[in-house]
C-alpha cells in the first residue's frame, strides 16, 4: 500500500504541476480565450489521482470502539514502528494505557505506580539474582 500511495502521489503531483503550468501559460498568451478542455481534464484527473494517493498512503486507522482498541493492544502488545530516538531507543506503538496504575494483582512486582517506587526492594531483588548466578 505504501508503494502504491507514493506512486499515485508522484504521478498526481507531476500532472498537477503540468496542468497548472499549462493553464498559466495559456492565460498569459491568450488573455481572453477560455481554458481548453484538455487542460481542465488534466487538472481534474491529477487532483483525483493525488487524493487517491494521499488516502492510500495514510497510516492505518485505529479501532474506534473502546473494546476493540483495548483488545488490539492486549493481543499485539507494543511494537516498534521503525522510528528511533537520538539515543538509539526505538519509539514503540501505544501500550496499555492503565499500566501506570500497576494493577496486575495483589502483591505484584510490576513497574506501575512510579511515584511509590521502592528502590531498596528492587535493588535487593537484583542483588539476590546476581548472587544466585544471574540465571534467566
Amino acid at each position: 500500500m505504501a508503494i502504491l500511495g507514493t506512486a499515485l502521489n508522484a504521478v498526481g503531483l507531476v500532472f498537477l504541476t503540468h496542468a497548472v503550468y499549462s493553464s498559466h501559460e495559456h492565460t498569459t498568451t491568450f488573455a481572453n480565450a477560455p481554458l481548453p478542455l484538455d487542460i481542465t481534464i488534466e487538472l481534474l484527473v491529477s487532483i483525483f489521482v493525488l487524493s487517491a494517493g494521499i488516502v492510500a498512503s495514510s497510516p492505518q486507522l485505529k479501532p474506534i470502539q473502546w473494546a476493540k482498541w483495548g483488545g488490539k493492544i492486549a493481543r499485539e502488545g507494543q511494537h516498534g514502528e521503525g522510528r528511533w530516538t537520538r539515543e538509539g531507543e526505538e519509539i514503540l506503538s501505544e501500550g496499555e494505557p492503565f499500566a501506570f496504575l500497576g494493577l496486575e494483582g495483589i502483591g505484584g512486582n510490576g513497574e506501575g505506580r512510579r511515584g511509590f517506587w521502592d528502590v531498596r526492594a528492587k535493588r535487593k531483588e537484583y542483588a539476590e539474582w546476581a548472587k544466585g548466578g544471574a540465571k534467566n
Binding site: L92, G102, N109, E111, W129
Partner: peptide, 20 residues
C-alpha cells in the same frame, strides 16, 4: 517485546531486563 526499551520500559522488569 524483544529488546528492553528505555523510552517505554516494560510493565514488568525482572533482574535480567534491568541489567540489559
Amino acid at each position: 517485546m524483544a529488546h528492553p526499551n528505555l523510552l517505554t520500559p516494560p510493565t514488568r522488569i525482572p533482574p535480567k531486563t534491568a541489567l540489559h
